[in-house]
Amino acid sequence: MFLEVKGLTKRFGGLLAVNQLDLTVNKGEIAGLIGPNGAGKTTTFNLITSVLQPTKGRVIFNGEDITYEKSHAIARKGIARTFQLNPLFGDFDVLQNVSTAFYISDTSNLFDMYFNTNKHRRNQKMIMEKSHEIIKMLGLEQVKNVLARNLPHGHQKMLGIARALAAEPQLLLLDEPIAGMNPDEVEAILKAINKIHEQGITVLVIEHNMMMMDICNRVIVMNFGQKIAEGTPQEIRDNEEVQSAYLGGV
């Protein structure tokens, strides 16, 4: 089991945002987490990455309990994510947005830095190469020197993914990567997700847009904080409970 969520519960005052959620993600798949607005999908991500602390339940990654680890430690263990809103370092350009994540794995210390030792220069060069690779893969080369906050929406979302990739994750959590995009941009993102998947990175993607399901191997449906269905995209499409959650339930 790669990522395993057991009985996860989060209570905000009187509201159960996530209720006894069990969820598994297998290594090497693209899993989808769908559900109507307010179903608790983003809260689930926040619980997995420790932005919020769960009321109850456990999160296990690679056989290790990470429920109460700090966010940055979880990122270092191999879970990176994007955010729905506020996804970037707005005052950095695209290249810096990506390379910042690499700096934490930079082994040069203050001494290396002050005296610009060979080791430091080598590390710098490596970071730049790796950053360029990611930027190239996601098609952001043309805008690499543009400030992130001046980018168009589609590019910002793409940059969010690039930045998450720079943390060198095994599991990538994407929070509504195609919300509010035009068809061309959607296609670019879907292609990017496929490329990331080909590199052996597992992807868990939130989308309440049903279009996303086509590229998923497996889809989990949430409503009112609970899992209501799980299966292949086709099964989910035919599931009556899911249909009523989307159409009749709201």
């Binding site: 990455t49 932005v51 700090k70 966010s71 940055h72 990122a75 270092r76 990176a80 994510r81 955010f83 506020n86 996804p87 970037l88 370092f89 707005g90 005052d91 950095f92 810096q96 390379s99 910042t100 994540a101 700096y103 934490i104 930045r163 998450a164 720079a166 943390a167």
Partner: peptide, 18 residues
């Protein structure tokens, strides 16, 4: 650079392992 990143968004910064 890492400090400036934290200033812009501590959430995003910790999400990449800072």
């Amino acid at each position: 650079t890492i400090l400036k990143a934290i200033a812009q968004s501590h959430l995003v910064a910790s999400s990449v392992g800072i």
